[in-house]
Nucleic acid binder design. Structure first.
Length: 544
RNA sequence: GCGCCAGUAGCUCAGCUGGAUAGAGCAACGGACUUCUAAUCCGUAGGUCGGGGGUUCGAAUCCCUCUUGGCGCGCCA
């Protein structure tokens, strides 16, 4: 809002200079300055356009400065053009005060985007129900869920979906593995094959099966065993997700939604009608290479069964048919090669590919005392979410998982979070909120006089207001680039500014006007901290 | 061989739709608790932004190339 105001003023003042060239509001870059010597905001307008109107940057800059200064003395305290041509703007304090007052009125809605009337689908986790969730899924869950929350806050209607791969070889193998575990318990020394599921959890499920089924004959029916194990594991997965406050709107089952409907059949017909498939080596292929992928891929195997890829095309065809304006897939980086393949397939079905977007999640390594804790799924030795949560607070886990950009892999050192809280950004942020709560407990003001904001004049107060102002942009940016980590960085900055301010002044000032002004300021900070933490899936305790 | 991601301070990472003196946390060093929660604050030190070219007023950011690391390249899912 403040930025829009300034841009608008700049545009009105300078557009006479640019009459002969293509120039509109969007050409104006305006940024908060990093260096306080450069005022509050700066624009590179003169540098950018000098050449186009045959002037030296400094000459153009000076012209612009004069215009801005003369026509906007109500908001600018000073306007200066500095070598090589930046125009630095210093605002009157009253502009910041008004801004803060407006934000105070918005309260918990500050930063949220206007309702966009657009539906967005975020599909994430989607781990096969053949094992418990581990660390890799955890990062995916945290990022996906936060992303959905951010998009919702930014004004989108968001749906969260989990695709259940409950079809095919892995599920069959799960049943076979269970059969072996049951046999083991009953005294048969059968060996688990190399590619079976070796995890301890399957032993528990086997015991469970024996306890609940009187007839051991049932233990020979692989299909029944598969389905038994799948249901159990799916429940475990749901429980684990609940532990980190991740929930889904849709649980989309491959078996019942793709295979037991006409979806697969229709999709195949659709592809064949469009003439994008062909027969080769007794299999049926799709011409993905014609739409940007490197190769063509098999969709019907020699044995006449469909491939995972065709099932996935069908699933995404279904997603497109549901009318979303954005379809976001949060995928592990090891699936990156599927991106171009799926994109190509969707393109050949004439879907608008811009709607389909991917967030790729790089690996996270879990370290304990500098040692890498391996997470091989087959060995069953991997670190599960529940193992981790037994040691680390949920808020910490969620925060750390979204603290880094998704496309960089990072190391999560367990020891550091456990030893003490010094190295813990979550507590740092939560502590800021707790401090504010503690101050608020000591006062009893219900109606704040917003004109009192004029008593906020020191540097730390103004920079705190600037930080508050930038929250809205951070949300927009985070939503647009699908990057939850931007919020975590922002919150750390905000908390730092608050802690520093807290040390520098006594908020509970004897002077009633100063007190009220400062309370307004910290109330807004509090609101943002709570909202920001909520977007990342972390809580905001009042006491610490 | 092909493709995706990454290489920034001792460590873990921001910054990447080009902008001014490249940032944060941790670790190191030195300070601050009779005062609203010290889970805090203030300060010092620490960098050829992997190497080399190019584009321009201006490059960590864009282009090319080389190099190092991670991950993929199944008629598995």
């Amino acid at each position: 809002m403040i930025k829009e105001l300034i841009k608008d003023r700049i545009y009105k003042s300078v557009s006479p200079l640019f009459e002969d060239i293509d120039f509109d509001l969007n050409h104006i870059d305006l940024d908060l300055t990093k260096n306080p010597m450069h005022g509050d905001f700066a624009t590179n307008l003169a540098l950018k356009f000098a050449k186009r109107i045959s002037l030296k940057p400094m000459d153009l800059g000076n012209k612009i400065s004069i215009l801005l200064k003369n026509q906007n003395s109500d908001i600018f305290a000073s306007v200066e053009c500095i070598n090589p041509g930046f125009i630095n703007l210093k605002l009157k304090l009253s502009v910041f005060h008004d801004c803060l007052s407006n934000i105070f009125v918005e309260r918990q809605y500050y930063g949220s985007g206007s309702k966009k009337n657009e539906k967005v689908l975020v599909e994430f986790v989607s781990a096969n129900p053949t094992g418990l969730l581990h660390l890799g899924h955890l990062r995916n869950a945290a990022v996906g869920d936060s992303l959905a929350r951010i998009l919702e806050f930014d004004g989108y209607q968001t749906e969260k979906e989990y695709y259940i791969n409950d079809y095919g070889n892995q599920i069959k193998l799960l049943g076979e593995s269970l059969k072996i575990r049951i046999a083991n318990i009953l005294g048969d020394e059968l060996e688990m094959p190399e590619d079976g599921y070796h995890g301890e959890y399957l032993k528990e499920i086997a015991q469970n099966f024996i306890d609940n089924n009187s007839s051991i004959d049932q233990a020979k029916d692989i299909e029944l065993l598969s389905s038994y194990a799948k249901e159990k594991l799916l429940n475990e997965i749901k429980n684990d997700l609940q532990l980190i406050d991740v929930t889904f709107d849709n649980w989309f089952s491959e078996t019942s939604e793709v295979h037991h409907t006409k979806l697969l059949e229709d999709t195949l017909k659709n592809l064949r009608d469009l003439n994008v498939t062909y027969e080769k080596d007794d299999a049926e292929w799709i011409k993905t290479s014609e739409h940007g992928d490197n190769d063509d891929w098999v969709i019907i195997k020699k044995n006449k069964l469909t491939t995972y890829f065709l099932n996935d095309i069908a699933y995404h065809r279904n997603k497109f048919s549901r009318g979303y304006s954005k379809i976001i897939n949060v995928w592990g980086a090891d699936h990156h090669s599927h991106v171009s393949r799926l994109n190509a397939a969707m393109k050949s079905l004439s879907f608008d590919n811009d709607k389909l977007q991917f967030v790729m999640i790089q690996f996270v390594r879990l370290l304990r005392d500098g040692q890498d804790i391996s997470m091989s799924k087959r060995s069953g030795e991997y670190t599960t979410i529940r193992d981790l949560l037994a040691e680390v607070n949920k808020d910490v886990v969620r925060f750390i998982m979204v603290m880094r950009s998704s496309d960089s892999h990072f190391d999560f050192d367990l020891g550091r979070c456990l030893e003490d809280s010094d190295d813990n950004p979550v507590f740092y942020i939560q502590y800021a909120n707790a401090r504010i709560s503690s101050i608020l407990e000591k006062v009893n003001i219900h109606d704040y006089d917003l004109t009192k904001t004029k008593y906020l004049t020191n540097d730390k107060e103004i920079s705190l207001i600037k930080k508050i102002i930038s929250f809205k942009e951070v949300i927009e940016e985070s939503s647009k680039t699908m990057s939850p980590h931007k919020i975590s960085f922002y919150l750390q900055d905000l908390a730092r500014d608050f802690h520093s301010y807290y040390k520098s002044v006594k908020i509970l000032d004897e002077n009633q006007s100063h007190l009220e002004a400062r309370l307004i300021l910290i109330l807004v900070v509090k609101e943002i901290l709570i909202n920001g933490l909520k977007l990342l899936g972390a809580s905001s305790p009042e006491n610490m």
